[in-house]
């Protein structure tokens, strides 16, 4: 991403810690991430890399006993932090930031009609900043919002949108439910949508339908999206830019084509080499992801890294610009870049 375009969503040096019975666990350690307007940015990493915590931190939904220890999150240049205060979080969540959850089978309440569930968010937040319906009497307001929902359901290509309002979640297939959830995320016309592995529970042909839909909707509506996934293939298909995370740290970020074709951080390189499409001898990365209770000093990948240099344990590597528009957090890459 270019330095000139101001970021819509700007996460700087964000660290999140959780108090557990066995001590303080450092889940995020100085995460940096910028979402440019109108783009789809993938956040990819293996389990334990902190990608779901990142989403929760941005949404102000960090679970009890966890807290942001440093850093900031800004939307449109306005800091979101202090989001722990529920009132602010409530007005930002849903209204300015939409959220598409992971499992379409669990995310809808089975005992309510989907129309009512979609209506609820708009009832609280209104349908975007230019919403004139908020002042209207109840019945009119309800009708106006119902029309908007039908319009949204048509936009997400759900068959028979008028009839869908009166149906219950179990009457929809997994792909259809995910379409409903996308409509819900877009209901209040947010500028940013966070998607947490929205296609993981779906079959590949359904996944393709949903990815194409997301691509189309973000283009048509000028919405930016942060797409969290563990699947490099999905990132390659969908995203413009990508951030790779490992054990709570940002490892590498940049345009998808560059990162996928010429990864420069040792972790990104080794991970991509594990993909069955590229792997020569089917060998994984030796070692395991460190426990967040006792993370290694400095770069958290250093115990598994074959190219470790003494600097690696000295401190958290900074995310510095490297070749081809990307940023890398690796002491060795930094050292090699400076002649």
């Amino acid at each position: 991403m270019t330095a000139s375009a101001p970021a819509l969503l700007d996460v700087r040096n964000l660290s999140v810690a959780v108090d557990t019975d066995e001590g303080v666990a450092s889940i995020l350690d100085g995460v940096n991430f910028q979402l440019a307007p109108g783009s789809i940015h993938g956040v990819v990493g293996e389990s334990g890399c902190g990608k779901s915590t990142l989403i929760k931190a941005i949404l102000g939904l960090l679970p009890a006993r966890s807290r942001a220890t440093e850093g900031s999150v800004a939307l449109n240049g306005k800091p979101l932090f202090g989001l722990e205060q529920a009132s602010t979080a409530h007005s930002v969540r849903g209204r300015q930031i939409g959220f598409i959850p992971q499992d379409p089978f669990l995310a809808l309440n089975p005992v309510f009609r989907v129309g009512d569930q979609l209506l609820e968010a708009m009832w609280w937040h209104g349908a975007g900043s230019d919403d004139t319906n908020r002042e209207k009497p109840r019945a009119q307001r309800r009708r106006a919002y119902s029309e908007r929902i039908v319009e949204l359901l048509r936009a997400v290509q759900l068959p028979d949108p008028e009839l869908a309002l009166a149906r219950y979640p179990h009457q929809f297939s997994g792909g259809q439910r995910q379409r409903l959830l996308i409509a819900a995320a877009l209901a209040c016309a947010p500028q940013v949508v966070l998607a947490d592995e929205p296609t993981t529970a779906l079959d590949v042909t359904t996944q393709l339908q949903i990815l194409k839909l997301l691509r189309q909707l973000t283009r048509e509506r000028g919405v930016s999206m942060m797409f969290v996934t563990h699947d490099f293939g999905v990132v390659a298909q969908l995203c413009d830019t990508v951030t790779v995370m490992y054990a709570g740290q940002t490892v590498e970020t940049g345009p998808v084509a560059t990162v996928m074709e010429q990864p420069s951080h040792p972790y990104t390189r080794m991970l991509l080499a594990c993909h069955p499409e590229r792997s020569v001898e089917l060998k994984g990365i030796p070692g395991a992801v460190p426990s967040p209770l006792r993370p290694p000093a400095g770069c958290r990948f250093n115990p598994r890294c074959p190219e470790v240099i003494p600097d690696c344990e000295s401190g958290r590597p900074k995310l510095l610009p490297a070749s081809a528009g990307r940023h890398v957090a690796c002491f060795r890459c930094h050292a090699e870049a400076v002649p």
Binding site: V204, T205, Q207, L208, L211, K212, R215, D231, F232, G233, V234, A236, Q237, L238, V256, A257, M260, E261, L272, H275, E277, R278
Partner: peptide, 14 residues
Amino acid sequence: SASPSLTPGQLDGM
């Protein structure tokens, strides 16, 4: 064709 591969950006043509 729906199966995601590592080659970036073929979504639109699929």
